[in-house]
């Protein structure tokens, strides 16, 4: 029921903010909102293993780096159930917000060069990493927002990294994704 309520909110959000047929402009407020909705929606098609929740059994922790605006946008959804747990939004740019565990990481443009050293090494396994930067997959990230024809927002998946991450992606999600198969460091 919780999920349906979240979805209903999201649907209402998208309907209000993103009228059909209107292209989503990258960088605009609307674009960010779409990204926020999609981040939440991704969790419906990805399954985290139980080991991911050993340190924080009751919370699903979503960390955001380099995009404070998105943090604000998502903050109201905190506490909502994701993967059967309460959602917690963490702004990783603030030093006091260092969670015990991290399940999902969004990297904004400003954080693209430091996420790997600060967060990537710390939380290693069971972490879904998403960014809107074109460099992200080459850096060993799993998902990346991409612009599709007609200014639509799509996403790409680095399949080899995803396979190693112990995260299970549903086929439906993969069907929608642009698949990349890059070993980390290939392009470095």
């Amino acid at each position: 029921m919780a999920i349906t309520r979240v979805l209903r909110v999201l649907v209402v959000l998208t309907l209000v903010l993103v009228p059909r047929g209107v292209p989503v402009m990258a960088g605009s407020v609307s674009s960010l909102q779409v990204k926020a909705a999609m981040l939440i929606k991704f969790t419906d098609f990805i399954t985290w293993p139980d080991q991911a929740f050993e340190r924080s059994p009751d919370t699903f922790v979503m960390g955001i780096m380099g995009d404070r605006e998105l943090v604000h946008l998502l903050q109201p959804l905190a506490g909502k159930p994701i993967q059967g747990r309460h959602l917690r939004i963490v702004d990783l740019d603030r030093a006091e917000d260092r969670p015990l565990a991290l399940h999902m990481l969004y990297v904004g443009r400003s954080g693209i060069h430091r996420w790997k050293t600060t967060v990537g090494t710390l939380y290693g396994a069971y972490l879904l990493t998403v960014s809107d930067s074109d460099l992200f997959l080459d850096q060993g990230g799993i998902m990346q927002f991409v612009e599709k024809s007609g200014n639509r927002l799509g996403f790409a998946v680095n399949r080899s990294v995803q396979m190693k991450s112990w995260l299970k992606f549903s086929a439906s999600l993969l069907r929608l994704a642009r698949i990349r198969d890059l070993e980390p460091g290939d392009a470095l």
């Binding site: 998208t14 999609m38 929606k41 419906d44 098609f45 599709k148 024809s149 639509r152 799509g154 549903s170 439906s172 999600l173 069907r175 929608l176």
Partner: peptide, 19 residues
Amino acid sequence: SINSIAALYFEDSEAAQEI
């Protein structure tokens, strides 16, 4: 129905068309 869930969910008309 099953295949189109994600397409509908993410409102991906291209994927839907493909399906």
